[in-house]
Amino acid sequence: MKVEVDRIGWDAGGSAIVDDVTATLTPGSFTAVVGPNGSGKTTLLHLVAGLRRPSRGDIRYDGKPLSDIRSRDRARSVALLEQQPDTSLELAVREVVALGRIPHVGRWPGARDADEELVPAAMQETDVTHLAHRTWSTLSGGERQRTQLARALAQQPRLLLLDEPTNHLDLHHQLSLLETVSRQGITTLAVLHDLDLAAAFCPQIIVMSQGRVAAAGDTEAVLTADLIDAVFGVRARVGRTDRLRVSWARKGAGR
């Protein structure tokens, strides 16, 4: 799905949390959103997801204004992976993944899901099949995140929005989660904190600062040491070995 974000802004308590953001996500692209805490990344993600209505500007999915799309129809093509989703209910992994079918299934009791096999398929894709009957409270952080990703995939999204999907995951699970996401070929927008992970997985990047876009475009061109210094106040080294790499130095240490 092609997503056009046209000069959107969102205000809260009299000040703009997100302001004048313009971006285009081409079909099948994988774009990172990076920026310091409080720079409006999650809000931007929620605006693109249609969970909040922008105070200004427009968002279009494949040319169609988001404000014209009914929420149920929207949920059939857009899936969101929240930051640290949690529940006190004793839901089994399979039941959590099946939540992703809610937008697709009729409301009448006994209505059958025509694509019932999508639930096991999504579980296979994120490697949680063996956990099917385990309950949510017994899962580790990585298992939870993979379960939620399977739920998002069961939604059959054409746009996937991820809010810090690698938080609290060990290195192995960070890599495997992002590899699973890239493999889908779905248009993806992911808030990431780790610039090196963004450099490794996301060909496009949006750098946010104080609610605005500080820079956007091809990651190779955008992610420079000067930009990182200006936005994060951290001196980093950006180089190419086998791929684009971002490494940082402790404040005060020589470059």
Binding site: H46, A49, A75, T87, L89, L99
Partner: peptide, 24 residues
């Protein structure tokens, strides 16, 4: 309520998640 059963299920992970599943 039987018509609302899937809607209520969608609230398992809270309000944002319910919205993302298409619930008003």
């Amino acid at each position: 309520l039987m018509l609302c059963a899937p809607t209520l299920d969608a609230f398992a992970f809270g309000e944002v998640s319910a919205r993302a599943l298409g619930i008003n």
